[in-house]
Amino acid sequence: MATDDDIAALIGRLALRDRAALSALYAATSPKLFSVCLRILKDRGDAEDALQEVFVKIWQRADRFAGAGAGPLGWLVAIARNHSIDILRSRKPVADSIEESWDIPDSARDPETETVLKGEGKRIDRCMEELESDRAGAVRSAYVEGLSYQELAERHGVPLNTMRTWLRRSLLKLRECLDR
């Protein structure tokens, strides 16, 4: 299994248009990225098409990889997730929500502290435990499977607005917990 450093080095070589690096990166990461596409799109043919697009994007965007944040594999997974979710959403539209009124209270944090927090990634599990289990489950399956609010509401047998409130409150609680 390739380490983060290996993957980061391969992405760096992609930025230099090194085709051998693309082949090596594909060998090292395609099973993970195919899994992402398959889990979200739920169809092998669609997932294979998506995987092709994802590697085309990786090749094109390699020079924008910063090496920070979720790490090199996290960066690749984010490309695969975003691409798969985009396909899903354009195929099966869901209601927009940005325009709606927001009734979520301000969490009142010091904005300056939040950008300097480091090494918090491993704390998400502990913070998830602070959520009620069905809400934690909704957060996790939204992320892993790319489910929409509507699909989550159906799966959990609650009204759409209830699901919105669940997830938004959960996100705020997670943020609060992660910042502690």
Partner: peptide
């Protein structure tokens, strides 16, 4: 930061081998 926080969920994606000819198509 959210991407980094939630990246831990990426462990849920177990490796699945893509079809053998996908790379040549790419």
């Amino acid at each position: 930061r959210w991407q980094e926080n939630l990246a831990e969920f990426n462990d849920e994606y177990d490796d699945v081998m893509p079809p053998a000819n996908t790379y040549s198509k790419i």
